[in-house]
């Protein structure tokens, strides 16, 4: 599937709820094409700044391209009707969310997608920034058919003492069980180009199916149109890479 279609894809979007880690009910933002045909699903993992408008826009873009998509609010437990930035500030002050909790919430989102009547059973995940790191962890932890990592920090490197939940993941590479697409900016410092090379080498040494693309003149967050980091050339090429990667892996 691709967003480059002759006919626009109509879709609906809504807030849904399902049980996440430890059975706690969490909210999620879902967007689904109105067509009844079978298709794959995509879990969007929001970044550290939270379950914000930008993350929801990503969800809608996947629906526009013909996928069922959902973004679980990893900060749901802060409370209902809390603004994304306030929730993110509270979570940060409390030391972040544990990986175990994130994986359980993402697993619930995967189950939600596979339970839709339109599901073909295939699900991928994508994350940016801290969500990129978590997407890498999903690939090593959960049953997904494809994973996309956009400038995920702390896959390699040293966790800051203030956020002990952000442990490096490079040692989990052998456990990755699906194809992985990595998109990075060469001006990024988190991860640095050298760290991106380390991640790619670890994947290749482990015999994993991976595809990395790096963009000159782009840094962290180049997909974000509301931020100064936005780089239109990198973002548009990145989206093309995403559609080309997901199409054969999540298609019917």
């Amino acid at each position: 599937m691709t967003e480059d279609r002759a006919v626009d894809t109509a879709f609906i979007s809504e807030t849904v709820q399902f049980p996440g880690h430890d059975g706690a009910v969490i909210e999620a933002y879902a967007a689904r094409p109105t067509a009844t045909s079978r298709r794959g699903g995509v879990v969007v993992i929001h970044h550290l700044p939270g379950y914000d408008r930008e993350s929801k826009e990503f969800v809608r873009r996947f629906a526009d391209a013909g996928y069922d998509a959902v973004c679980p609010n990893l900060y749901s437990r802060v409370g209902a009707d809390v603004s994304p930035d306030d929730a993110a500030a509270a979570v940060r002050a409390d030391g972040g969310v544990p990986d175990e909790q994130v994986m359980a919430d993402v697993a619930a989102a995967i189950s939600y997608l596979r339970g839709l009547p339109t599901s073909n059973g295939k699900v991928g995940c994508i994350g940016h920034c801290s969500g990129g790191r978590q997407s890498y962890l999903v690939a090593a932890t959960l049953p997904v058919d494809a994973a996309i990592v956009c400038y995920g920090g702390l896959i390699v490197g040293e966790a800051p003492p203030q956020l002990p939940t952000m442990v490096p993941l490079i040692d989990r590479t052998q456990e990755i069980s699906c194809p992985l697409l990595g998109l990075f900016g060469n001006d990024d410092q988190f991860p640095t180009p050298d760290q991106v090379d380390q991640i790619e080498k670890a994947l290749n040494d482990a015999g994993k199916d991976c595809e990395f693309h790096r963009y000159d003149g782009a840094g962290h967050g180049f997909f974000s149109p509301d931020r100064p980091a936005y780089r239109v050339e990198a973002a548009l090429d990145g989206w093309d890479r995403i559609w080309a990667f997901l199409g054969p892996r999540l298609g019917g």
Partner: peptide, 9 residues
């Protein structure tokens, strides 16, 4: 990135 460098007090 998220530098994650945070001080709380």
């Amino acid at each position: 990135m998220c530098t994650h460098v945070t001080e709380t007090f």
